[in-house]
Design a protein around this nucleic acid. Structure first.
Lengths: 223, 223
DNA sequence: AAGCTTCTTGACCATTCGGTCAGGAATAAT
DNA sequence: ATTATTCCTGACCGAATGGTCAAGAAGCTT
């Protein structure tokens, strides 16, 4: 990473031992929590090490540097993200696609709340590490989807709303339940969100957003 | 705040001088930027002082402590927030209320993006300073509005959607353009959002959300 | 002009920061 | 059993952290 002078530590690359794997997992999990809660600058290796149950030196032995650890976490989160960015075609059913979109995004936020918050903190701080990704792969992906949405609109399958704003709407609405969890729980007087809650929220979002942009639900006749 | 041993500094309370006012404004603005970008822990007084164009000691002279400065910023943001939490009644027009709600929230995010991000960072970190506010005033406000939304639904003025999820949807969708500004700009290949952009987004959100929960726009007849 | 309050700031402090390193412990290879 | 390699960690480093303080500068009030 053009970081210079890190010739040693070839072990960092290939992981084979079992304890190594466990330790790395523990460190990544702890680091994700700490970075998510305090951002890149606010996170401290001492905190991470303590939460991972290891001495600070050991964390650095495995991860090389704070920056390297952070980048690795970001990349892991991007990989999870990309895993659900399946391709769609103009011939797919808008209702199915949009519902799957909302649902999978919601599940990602629920399955990896810390990673979701880590991502949010990165963007909040101006995305110093993710500029390239945002202006590259992610932009392309959004534009491709937007093009399909426009074609659906032309075919009368949905209202002619701006597809990019629509994608942002879905992102924000789903991401909210991970990033603003503290607010949601505080206001609704809950300890945590149950599976039933998440299902209800998903159904609500699907219903409102689909109806809101004139997409007829699957198998249901027009009103 | 039960912080103990801060008997001195009576000047911190009453502000009258003109230079004092200017310096305080400068410090608060700089601090809002830094706290927003890096969170409470990640922000440094040296950074804030430099951006305010003052020596670090002077910042502490005016603000007492990092914690005090942060709390003051949060309170200022809550005050801005409360300023647009006007009361509504069951007899108001749902379309008007919801549109005004979306619009004013959008304007708040646009007028005070740093404050908006500061708030977001606080929530992201588990809202250590805002627990009380969330579980108190804000919860009450949400529940009051929710009750009215339910009555509207009973009267057939809107679909019987869960009002709390609806409020969260509006919050998240509008907040997104401040908090995730870096993402929005990166993906849409913009330098900044123009007034026209914001107006278009507001119109989009109003249209989709109102239609999505079955609220008929003002002055328009039923479909 | 004297005296008082407010303002300003460089020097300084204890603590914590990310990171290095030497050397011992554990493990694998022969 | 003896290397050789990998793993582990306490001690340590310079830099940065939030905060204190004393002493001077500036501005009123009398």
């Amino acid at each position: 990473m053009s970081q210079g002078d890190v010739p040693a530590n070839p072990r960092v690359e290939g992981g084979n031992g079992a304890t190594r794997e466990r330790n790395e997992r523990e460190i990544l999990a702890a680091a994700e929590r700490v970075f998510a809660a305090h951002g890149y600058r606010g996170a401290s290796l001492a905190d991470i090490a303590e939460q991972a149950g290891l001495p600070k030196s050991n964390v650095l032995y495995y991860m090389g540097s704070k920056r390297g650890l952070y980048v690795r976490l970001l990349e892991r989160m991007m990989a999870r993200w990309n895993a659900l960015l399946d391709d769609i075609s103009v011939d797919d059913d808008p209702a199915e696609v949009l519902e799957a979109f909302i649902r999978s995004k919601m599940q990602l936020s629920r399955r990896h709340p810390e990673g979701s918050r880590l991502f949010a903190a990165e963007i909040l701080g101006g995305a110093p590490f993710l500029q390239e990704y945002l202006r590259g792969d992610l932009r392309d992906w959004v534009q491709a989807r937007a093009a399909i949405f426009r074609q659906w609109a032309e075919r009368g399958l949905m209202d002619p709303v701006d597809p990019v704003w629509l994608i942002f709407l879905i992102w924000s609405a789903t991401q909210h339940y991970a990033d603003f969890e503290a607010q949601v729980l505080g206001i609704t007087d809950r300890e945590s969100l149950s599976d039933a809650d998440v299902e209800a929220i998903t159904a609500f979002l699907t219903r409102v957003i689909l109806k809101g942009c004139g997409v007829r639900p699957r198998t249901e006749p027009a009103v």
